[in-house]
Amino acid sequence: MTARRGIPVASLALGAALSVVGCTSVFEVPIDTPIQAKLDVTPFQRVHVVGFVSGGTEDVDANMETVRLLRSQLRTKSRLRVIEADPLPLQQVARDQSAPAARTGNGGGAPEATPSSGAMPFPAKIQDEKDLEAYEALFANAAYWKKIGEEFQQPLIVTGSVIFRPHQASGIVTQEREVYDQFGRRQVVPMRVYMERKGYILRPKFVFIDGRTGAVLYQESYREERLYPTQQNVPALSSFFEQMDAVLPSFLNTLSTTRVRGSRILLK
């Protein structure tokens, strides 16, 4: 092939390619993607948030606040009817179940429960995650949960544990600072500063139990942490709700389909 003949071939091919490629227009479009629920809750008509084994700071009653929050969310964001009943004193129930008295039926409503013989001793106060180990047998006690299910027309039972405890940390953090140059122009620049910070850690574990059989259907644990500058006095309850807000979408997605909002780019 000579150079002279090569040029028209190349230009024709290029022209064809250009006409095929053309110009691309882009259009941003909002989308709403459905994410299926983690659990099939179609066999249930009702949901009973019975309470949580809780511990950590005394500034927040993590059990009561979690029960109240989950019930209110489920009332508006789930098709299940929410049972309104006093939360169960689960810490006491767990102790009663492990005590020999449970066998004689005097153990705070733990029927026929298999006491966890040789189980870990219960801590005087629940401070952190390791103190919860002694309570694990409670969630696995199918006979107990089946009895609770019978009392409330076999709902989906929601229980678990919630630790909400104070936390402190110090270290280098990046902050944005306003600076003005010699002409008085404002600029925002990142600066690394040493800071003492305090805040809270939230460790909820949600356990979903079949009220017909007492069996655990699903469980999921979360960890959230918020730290604030020491001079910023954030109330414990505010931090609790701030952190629960982050966990709630995933909790609700266990029971119902949720939609994730976003945007994508359509092309022409």
């Binding site: 092939m1 071939v9 095929v20």
Partner: peptide, 30 residues
């Protein structure tokens, strides 16, 4: 060589037409 060039040109026109039709469908889809 000329035949090849014509062939390429013709196929280019054909695919340009196809692209135009596809683009109008895509535009309506958008």
């Amino acid at each position: 060589m000329l035949a090849l060039a014509l062939l390429l040109g013709a196929s280019g026109v054909a695919s340009a037409d196809a692209r135009k039709d596809a683009q109008s469908q895509a535009a309506f889809g958008i």
